[in-house]
């Protein structure tokens, strides 16, 4: 498989305003992902995280800068990476099975094959027995897992996850973390995860990118030096706490700078 490398350089994104100068959502972002990386992007609400994903997914054209997958530009080219949006966006008129195979279906791949593959994976995603259920009959966590399975079945080496666990309660989240980590290791995808939760970011990632408030810059990168196969217990270690402290320090840096100036 072509393990892909994602390069983002000098990215600047502006929303066109009505008449006046537009809103700059992203001022300057550089980001490099090696194959099989799991990185998190954490930042205040409204700082431009979803905007960054929209640009990587080819849905939005940046004002300047480059986005390259294995050296080839993917600016304005949708379909090169798999993208799980902030909301699960399951189609209510399709069964779970029909929802999760949407990617291959739209790509014109044989439907029977996609379905068989999906059927064998349902169990791994905790959806066994629900293949013919409509999304209305699923719990919040099941919906998120269905959306994630749909994203995995798109068979792209880079996966963008925009707050995939945002809608869940703390308990479900914790169990989903271990599961998500397992999925990433098993399927060997490169994943970028947007989150608001420092614990989640540190626990899941190889690196945490901390974003500044809008217009977005990368305020700092925290490499997570925890073993790759980490159990839940790792969250109780001093190393984990130290990483979390670094992330929080970067997150709150602008506030401190502001209060220092005052």
């Amino acid at each position: 498989m072509a393990q892909a490398r994602l390069d983002i350089a000098n990215l600047r994104v502006t929303y066109a305003g009505n008449g006046q100068a537009g809103v700059t959502a992203i001022e300057k972002v550089d980001l490099t992902l090696e194959p099989n990386d799991f990185v998190s992007l954490i930042g205040p609400s409204g700082c431009g995280k979803s905007t960054l994903f929209n640009v990587i997914a080819g849905l939005q054209i940046p004002e300047s800068g480059a986005v390259a997958l294995d050296g080839g530009s993917i600016v304005g080219r949708p379909g090169c990476v798999a993208y799980m949006m902030q909301r699960d966006l399951l189609l209510p008129w399709r069964t779970v099975l029909e929802n999760v195979t949407l990617g291959p279906e739209l790509a014109g791949q044989p439907l029977a094959r996609a379905r068989d593959t999906a059927m064998t994976l349902l169990h791994r995603f905790g959806l066994e027995g629900f293949e013919n259920a409509y999304p209305a009959a699923l719990s919040g966590g099941m919906r998120q897992r269905a959306a994630l399975l749909r994203t995995i079945l798109c068979e792209r080496s880079v996966i963008l996850l925009d707050e995939p666990l945002g809608a869940l309660d703390a308990l479900t989240r914790a169990s989903m973390h271990e599961w998500l980590l397992g999925i990433q290791r098993e399927f060997q995808r490169t994943m970028i995860l947007i989150t608001h939760d420092p614990d989640e970011a540190v626990y899941l990632s190889d690196r945490v990118y901390v974003a500044s408030p809008r217009p977005m810059r990368i305020a700092g990168i925290v490499p997570i030096e925890l073993p790759r196969d980490r159990g839940r217990d790792v969250t109780l270690t001093p190393e984990f706490a130290e990483h979390k402290r670094q992330v929080l320090a970067l997150l709150h840096a602008p506030e401190r700078a502001r209060s220092a100036a005052a």
Binding site: L97, R115, T117, T120, L121, E155, R156, F187, R189
Partner: peptide
């Protein structure tokens, strides 16, 4: 009721981890 059990599918499910573009 839809059942899919051919061994080929299991194979593909395993491959999927290594066949992404």
């Amino acid at each position: 009721p839809r059942r899919a059990s051919p061994a080929a599918a299991t194979m593909r499910a395993k491959q999927i981890g290594t066949s992404a573009r």
